[in-house]
Design a protein around this nucleic acid. Structure first.
Lengths: 344, 344
DNA sequence: ATTGGCACTCCAAATACCAGAGTGCCAGCG
DNA sequence: CGCTGGCACTCTGGTATTTGGAGTGCCAAT
């Protein structure tokens, strides 16, 4: 694309101008308005020729014959990849973010604050994933006897997540046995990554007398199956009201988006793109895997240390969104959250 | 109202018919259509007289001259209080609810399933509150040493909620001390209601040597302040996409609703109306405390045993909603959830 | 390659119009 | 006294119709 001789500098300028104008006005932009607002140094006729070419190449399109041009997904893509620079947040914004996030009490609070903040700053829908269990280390495993034959398994991770599951036994278990298992588990996995648990625990049962094995195995299988193999990834979102700021043909365009946003799975898949805190990933329009989100874009990144990202966060909005601004905000917020959580 | 001689039986019938028709068609309903659809045994002229009277009394209104009538909030109120009977769910629906809820693994799962279910059945926005901490009993208190001077306080309630807070000490604490405090706490509060904790714990510090008091007091104050005095009431919602099914003048009417729904405080206040599982409370339109929800209604009830309700749940929709259906669904779902949680 | 000019297209807003639904009122009737 | 049919009136919502203007593509000239 870069070496496409057809796209000389001016044409790229034109595309950039179209994207910027369209994003800010939400109206198809015509050649005349373009030369007026940007000093391109050529006449509108020239711009028209350029636009015809940009259209031929698929970067822009016109809603109907005699209307201005609108960027296509491909156009936004080029814009994001080559024509824009990230818009850094203002000093005031940075300060606000930092102080706001530092006031958080616990993990839930951090996540809640983050998502609201992100929604507010970008004026889009914000999505924040809880630190992923699979990338977390075990801080402590606790077993609490609820009733003679039931135990609550509580897992605490280094990122502050606390997950619990009920373990049911066929017969009653005594307190001493519970303590033994608790001790054995913690000795093996405390401080280790949750994903390592299966290998670390595969011979833990050997140390127990034969008649106690059912208990040990019940606890182990609950832990491995529901916490390691099918971990409960959580996502929270905020700012759905921002969706109403767009598109005039309302109920129809907003509906599928709201529906999609209710599916945790969908959200996770969207954020799944982002695995490296150093990179802000952008999914534009139809690049988006989910049907109902074909007219939205997702800007996301991972947070946490770059060697060991914890999870992802991002924003979702219409394809005509302020990409430089969103990218800047997402990156900044991700950094602060990473710092906060690293410090805990 | 009941003894208002002006409202004879037929006028009430007319009001009922207007509400029902308007809810199902979303069109102002006129006298002619009314006599056709319901066999009222009188002519449309008579109905017109009745309608003029109902309007005078403020139960219905017309959007403009020469349009049909639309119920007012006052009209809906009368309808709900005196003119409708709760619509029970079909056997199939009941079965579906039961089996769906019984598949839940833990409390989070129960709540998530409930809220989705309620949204689906009523086709409205559903709101479910987690079992309130203040109405729960303590099953177990756990203290986990995170670092030399930090301990994680984990509270497990009889309803399956697990809450945690970090307790910071000015100096390091040893494992034995942690164990002592844990033991002391559990001896006092296990099995007791959380609201009783303050009085049960007021002399717990006496049993400890003077130099250990700072530790004990830190733990106590965290527990009492953040878990008892300012408990973290959680609410989840689902079905926001259902909001798009209404009102044509869209962005403007849906916006404030979405905004209000993002405020936990607002949701809690709405559900706060419902304190008795035997009563389904209905808030109609402007009865609603929150500004942005003036054109919506809330149908809610408490769930749990009636002597000891756990929390509340409900649905929110436009004032022109199917009240009998919503009331039936809310009541049914509340019962099932109460049963499920009681069984755990 | 760029530009001014021009004919052409098409939407969007304004205007006009009409059919229909609905109302209120009244006089007559049981 | 309540009910009814009849009637004149009102208002909206939908359908045409018009029109102004923005925007385009193309072409000949520079």
């Amino acid at each position: 694309m870069l070496d496409d001789a057809v796209l000389d500098d001016r044409k790229l300028d034109v595309l950039r101008a179209i994207v910027e104008d369209y994003v800010s006005t939400n109206e198809p932009v015509g050649s005349k308005a373009l030369v007026e607002r940007h000093n391109l140094g050529v006449s509108s006729a020239t711009i028209r020729n350029d636009m015809a070419l940009l259209e031929e190449e698929g970067y822009i399109a016109q809603p109907h014959t005699s209307a201005g041009r609108v960027p296509t997904d491909k156009g936004y893509r080029l814009f994001v990849d080559r024509l824009s620079s990230i818009k850094p947040l203002s000093a005031a914004e940075r300060r606000a973010i930092q102080t706001f996030l530092e006031g958080a009490l616990d993990l839930d609070d951090v996540v809640r604050r983050t998502v609201r903040l992100l929604a507010q700053v970008t004026r889009q829908v914000a999505v924040v994933q809880y630190p992923s269990l699979s990338r977390s280390a075990v801080r402590h495993v606790e077993l609490v006897r609820l009733s003679p034959a039931r135990v609550l398994l509580v897992l605490i991770t280094d990122t502050g997540r606390v997950e619990q599951r009920v373990v049911e036994f066929g017969q009653s278990i005594d307190e001493a046995m519970v303590a033994d298992i608790r001790m054995a588990l913690n000795n093996r996995v405390a401080g280790k990554l949750l994903v390592e648990a299966p290998s670390l625990l595969d011979d833990v049962a050997d140390a127990f007398p034969r008649d106690r094995l059912p208990f040990v195995n019940s606890v182990l299988s609950t832990m491995l199956e529901t916490l390691v193999e099918h971990p409960d990834e959580r996502v929270v979102l905020a700012g759905t009201a921002n969706l109403t700021r767009f598109s005039v043909d309302f109920p129809y365009s907003i509906r599928p988006v709201l529906e999609a946003l209710e599916e945790q799975v969908v959200l996770l898949r969207l954020l799944g793109e982002a695995t490296d805190p150093a990179i802000v990933s952008v999914l534009i329009g139809a690049e988006n895997p989910h049907e109902g989100l074909r007219s939205t874009s997702v800007v996301s990144t991972a947070y946490g240390r770059s060697e060991a990202p914890l999870a992802a966060l991002g924003v979702l909005g219409p394809t005509r969104m302020d990409y430089p601004g969103a990218i800047g905000a997402v990156r900044a917020v991700a950094r602060y959250v990473g710092q906060i959580l690293a410090g805990q």
